[in-house]
Design a protein around this nucleic acid. Structure first.
Lengths: 142, 142
DNA sequence: GTATATGCAAAGGGTTTGCACGGTT
DNA sequence: AACCGTGCAAACCCTTTGCATATAC
């Protein structure tokens, strides 16, 4: 975990609270946790913490750059520490498995979009959906 | 609009109703409409149509292959006719503009994912977020 | 006539917000 | 002591569902 997470918060005028520490630790340990999952993890240590606190805390932690989130399909976004090396998410529409791959894998595509359309993609922010190997071979087309 | 939309529905055992026609027409004319927007458009002709009907109808129309949807960030998905040539969506985080580009633009990237990870992406299903040219140059980083 | 589609209203998931209390600084 | 952060509950948005009625076939 970012060693100076507390300093990071203080610098920007935020206070250090047990909730913030616990949420940050949970984001780290879960790796791809939704707010609900993060709450559950936090509550293993501090059962009184509220879901709204988790949402507010995630916003703060993201604001100071300690975490980011990715939209992985229809449900809640998932959060991860910015300690992790930047990665893209491949989400299988069949079995919902999430494959993380180095952000560099999208480098050429990103450069292309930049050049051709003047658009600077943040490809880590939205997952790429599709079918994983096993689901592609056993696909049932409705 | 797909000339034989009615046949397409009938073939699969669905009935032809004014609502289905109106929803399909609205999806066509709006090009990137959310369910709510589609309802509003439909209601210009038939004010009594209900939002739940729109949802159910979109599901049916997508099921028979007349329309598809794309997730464009946090809000509701947007629907488009399958008559349109397949395209990717670039969505600006700054001004929310949606740029449609030929699906072919992602071909190399897709081939790469396939080869390296055995993953077959459906890149038209999730938008690519990022910053458009003008927002990239005037970025206010909070 | 029969089964499907619709309208309505209620319920459901996920997220945000107002407010008073409690904790950090 | 002042102010920020939290818990709680209510509100909110989007979507789905149960049910009785209406409609396409």
């Amino acid at each position: 975990m970012t060693e100076d997470w507390a300093g990071r918060l203080r610098e920007q005028g935020f206070r250090i609270t047990p909730q913030r520490q616990l949420v940050l630790e949970s984001v780290n340990s879960l790796e791809h946790g939704t707010p609900e999952e993060i709450l559950t993890e936090v509550q293993r240590t501090a059962s009184g913490v509220n879901l709204s606190t988790v949402y507010r805390t995630l916003e703060v932690l993201e604001g100071v750059g300690l975490i980011t989130h990715t939209h992985i399909g229809h449900g809640s976004p998932v959060y991860h520490s910015t300690d992790q090396s930047p990665h893209l998410h491949l989400v299988c529409d069949g079995c919902a498995v999430v494959i993380s791959i180095p952000a560099a894998a999208g480098g050429e595509f990103a450069a292309d979009l930049e050049e051709t359309y003047g658009f600077t993609p943040a490809m880590t922010h939205m997952a790429v959906t599709g079918l994983c190997k096993s689901c592609a071979s056993s696909t049932v087309v409705t």
